[in-house]
Structure formats: C-alpha cells, structure tokens
C-alpha cells in the first residue's frame, strides 16, 4: 500500500464550512449539512461513515458539485468550484467522477456496455483538444475492460446480462474512462452480496494503487470503510463528529458516537462475554436537531454542559479531530 508523508502536497479537494439546507414546508428547514469542513490529499482514501440521514451522500454530491451547496466553499485542486459557471466547470469534471450504489439504475438498459463506457470519451474533448477518433476510443475501451476485470466481449452486451458485481465493474470503467484524479463512490458495494463485495473492494484498492487515484468513499459499513480508507470522517446529523486516521478512529474512537457505532456492528464472531447494551433511541430529526451537542440525547456519557453548549471540532494530540467536550481518548495521549 502506498503511504503518503503527512505533510504531503496541498489537498486535491477541500470543503470549507459547507452547508446544505432544504425547505420542507411550514417554514421548516432541514439542515442536511451543517457546517462541514474537510480536505482530502492526493492518493488518500477518505471514508465517510454515518447512519441514514447523516448527510454523507449529500456531502459527496456537494464535493462534485452535483448539487449546489447553500453556503460554504468547495475547492478542487486550488480552484474554487462552488460558484464556477458550468462552462468553466466542465473541463474540471473530467478529473472528478462518481460511482453510485445502484449499478443498474446508473446504466441505460437500452444501450450496449461499449456505448455506455464510451460516452464520456465522446462528450469530452481529447487531451489535445478536438474529438477522439474511433480507433482511440476502441483502444481505450479495451484498456478499461482489462482494468476492471471484464472480458472484451462485455462491450457488445447489455447491462441486464450482467450480475450486480459485474455491473458495478462497468460503472467503475465508465467513471475511469477520462482518467479522473478524484472518484467519489457512494455506497458502491452496499447492494452486493458479501462474496462479491470483497471482489469490488479489492478492485477499488488495486485501481487506487495502479492509477494513483484519490477516493471519497461513502458507506455505512464500518468494516468496508476500514478496509479501504486511510482516513475516516464520522458524521451525525449533518456534521462531522470525528475525523482522523482510519486506524486511530476505528480502533480507539474518541467520540462516544463513533464508539457506539462500532459496538453496534454485528460481527461474524460468536462472543463468549455478553454484548454491550445497545444505544437507546433513534437519530433525531434533522429538521429539529437537539440543542447543545447534537448527540447528547443518545450519548451514554453526556453531562449537563453537553445539553447547552455545542462542541466544535478540535484537534487531539494524536492529530485527529473530534467534536466532543469529553472525548473517550484522553487529552494527554
């Protein structure tokens, strides 16, 4: 695995105080993202984890400007793309691609795989300007099939002729067609059976090593995220509650929510001791998030201060950031 020095080059993509609000009627406002800041360095894999409604998918889409954030900035490779007009954003789009959860919905069922994967090559100009030749496109398609482990014969077939895992390979081939630098993958293995999921996770890791890709990997499955990520951001109700090196965050969580999330994962191991008591209650509505710390209503270690004083993200000595007044990992560590 390629390891990057900690003070490596400037971030490939950064979000600064991103906010995404939706009006939901009766004057109510849903805060899908409530001030999110993060940066991803080249070659990194940032895992975005959290439960449904935490804002992880919205954040992924904002980063690629598939949706326009309500406030805040997204900077891609030094360029502020938040308000860039579509005409000027378009050349940058080649560098940032997305892979979605539903491999079938993402592919037009009436077109052959070759056409689907070639589409970005036809839409975007060749590196030197001008259109790509048929021969160039055919050669690139052949390369892409090899890259994602599909036979060349796949190019003349239709999406429904493939299994879910193979369809996800097709989507990955299409995302890679223009040699992007950043890939945002939104739950790319969530719909797959475990035995197939392992194949696709391995493929993502191989591609990163071979092509030097940078990923933002959105997933609810902590074990999958740990496998693939170098850093992890844990989200709860539209905000990041913990952000740091994957091993630090998932082995010695500092935020009580991260700890609860890890404890709740059913592991394929029969335990001799009893299970920890589950977290109580449901995630509160993002329309009316609780005052103070947004996790205090379910937090097993909440104190009075947590009910009134919202904690901001702050750095711990080991470099990770946590939004908690009383982190589980001591300040002295």
């Amino acid at each position: 695995m390629t390891r990057l020095p900690v003070d490596s080059p400037s971030p490939l993509i950064a979000a600064q105080d991103l906010r995404m609000t939706y009006r939901v009627g009766r004057g109510q406002v849903l805060r899908a993202l409530d001030g999110v800041s993060l940066s991803v360095r080249p070659g990194e894999v940032l895992g975005l984890v959290g439960e449904s409604g935490c804002g992880k998918s919205t954040l992924g889409r904002c980063l690629l400007r598939l949706v326009q954030p309500s406030a805040g900035r997204v900077v891609f490779d030094g360029t502020d793309i938040t308000t860039l007009p579509e005409r000027r954003l378009r050349p940058l789009r080649q560098d940032m691609q997305m892979v979605f959860q539903d491999s079938y919905a993402a592919l037009n069922p009436r077109r052959r795989v070759g056409d689907l994967v070639a589409e970005p090559l036809r839409v975007h100009p060749a590196p030197g300007g001008g259109r790509r030749s048929r021969a160039d496109i055919a050669a690139r398609l052949a390369e892409l099939m090899d890259l994602v482990g599909l036979p060349q014969a796949a190019l003349t077939r239709y999406p429904h002729e493939f299994s879910g895992g193979q369809r996800q390979r097709i989507n990955i081939a299409r995302a890679l067609a223009l040699s992007p630098r950043l890939v945002v993958a939104d739950e790319p293995v969530a719909a797959l059976d475990v035995s197939i999921q392992a194949q696709i996770v391995n493929l993502f890791m191989d591609l990163r090593d071979r092509l030097g890709l940078t990923y933002v990997f959105v997933a609810h499955d902590l074990a999958v995220v740990r496998q693939i990520s170098t850093r992890v951001a844990v989200m709860y109700l539209g905000a990041i509650v913990e952000l740091g090196e994957a091993d630090a965050v998932l082995h010695r969580p500092a935020h009580p929510y991260t700890a609860a999330l890890i404890a709740a994962v059913p592991e394929p191991v029969v335990r001799t001791e009893g299970l920890p008591p589950p977290l109580r209650g449901d995630v509160p509505s993002p329309i009316a998030p609780p005052p103070g710390c947004r996790f205090h209503t379910r937090c097993p270690v909440a104190r009075d201060r947590c009910r009134v004083d919202p904690p901001g993200l702050r750095a711990l000595p080991d470099g990770r950031e946590v939004a908690c007044h009383y982190p589980l990992v001591g300040e002295g560590h």
């Binding site: 391995n202 496998q227 091993d247 890890i262």
Partner: peptide
Amino acid sequence: SIPPLHGPRPARLPS
C-alpha cells in the same frame, strides 16, 4: 470475505 473490523487489515480481502 467479510472485512474484519478488528485486528490487522488484510492487504486484499479473500473473495
């Protein structure tokens, strides 16, 4: 083929 949540991370998942 299930990625482990604890212990060392395998370089590749057995699939």
